[in-house]
């Protein structure tokens, strides 16, 4: 599967969406991300892989400044979105997060109805002019999140009452309802069964037409299936970054090879 993906990505390879230079992240005294340089391309799916605790989530949260909410977290270096430094004081993190959406590692639906969960972002950003448009956005997002059929009869039921996997898809639908330019997904399929996983992967592939998607995953197969670029993190370092096919068939770094073949992790 990644063979076709590779050729496609070669065709699409247009411009850099996000570029990170010399990024360091500290949690208090812990140095969690060490000197990471990476160029994330537009209209591309980039996979972050690596053993647990290596800093994938941390780095992902830097890309939409979610780390601002953690008091002890400190980020240095430059992260440019469309050439603009997102850590510049002029930049409004609230607006940035509307452009760079995020699906979290743990599903976190609001204690509201399913409808209100999805409508939350569009309402805040005024994306719908009337109720009909809002209904349309909700339905479209739920369909793209591969959960419409399961919830269409109970849009008024609380989102917290869904199963873990359904909640995860609800959160995905919620994130795409605001039409972000970049979608950051932290292990979006960790709670999903194979069918829902396949649906989410299909969604990711579809999103690639218009957005840049970054996905953190612990599944090598998934990384290989959905991504065109792969970044391998280890102990806070970005060890290797390149074409997914290249990383999986012919990694340059011995650490990458041993992780992919299952020797470290």
């Amino acid at each position: 599967m990644y063979d076709t993906a590779k050729t496609e990505s070669a065709l699409d390879q247009t411009e850099t969406k996000i570029s990170a230079r010399n990024v360091q992240v500290y949690y208090g005294d812990t140095h969690a991300i060490k000197d990471v340089n990476v160029e994330i391309e537009d209209k591309t799916v980039t996979a972050f892989i690596g053993p647990s605790g290596c800093g994938k989530s941390t780095f992902l949260r830097c890309l939409n400044r979610m780390n601002d909410t953690i008091d002890i977290c400190r980020v240095t270096g430059d992260i440019l979105l469309d050439g603009e430094d997102i850590y510049d004081p002029k930049v409004d993190p609230v607006q940035l997060r509307a452009k760079v959406g995020m699906v979290f590692q743990k599903p976190n639906p609001f204690p509201k109805s399913i409808y209100d969960n999805i409508a939350y972002g569009p309402r805040i950003h005024g994306l719908a002019r009337n109720k009909a448009e809002l209904d349309e956005i909700v339905e479209k997002s739920l369909r793209r999140g591969a959960i419409w059929d399961e919830v269409k009869d109970r849009l008024d039921a609380p989102g917290t009452g869904l199963s873990g996997g359904q909640q995860q898809r609800l959160c995905i639908a919620r994130a795409i309802a605001t039409e972000p330019e970049v979608l950051l997904m932290d292990e979006p399929c960790s709670a999903l069964d194979p069918i829902a996983t396949a649906q989410v992967e299909e969604l990711i592939d579809e999103l690639r037409q218009s957005y840049s998607v970054v996905i953190v995953t612990h599944s090598m197969q998934q990384a290989a299936r959905v991504s065109q670029k792969t970044a391998f993190f280890h102990l806070g370092h970005l060890v290797e970054y390149g074409e997914t096919g290249q990383i999986f068939t012919n990694p340059e770094d011995p650490r990458t090879e041993s992780y992919i073949t299952g020797r470290i992790g």
């Binding site: 939409n64 979610m66 909410t69 609230v94 607006q95 940035l96 997060r97 509307a98 452009k99 959406g101 995020m102 979290f104 743990k106 976190n108 639906p109 609001f110 204690p111 939350y120 972002g121 805040i124 950003h125 959160c171 919620r174 994130a175 605001t178």
Partner: peptide, 12 residues
């Protein structure tokens, strides 16, 4: 906190 993160992450 996940509740707040979810909302902030949507640009609220």
């Amino acid at each position: 906190q996940a509740m707040r993160d979810g909302s902030l992450g949507l640009g609220a």
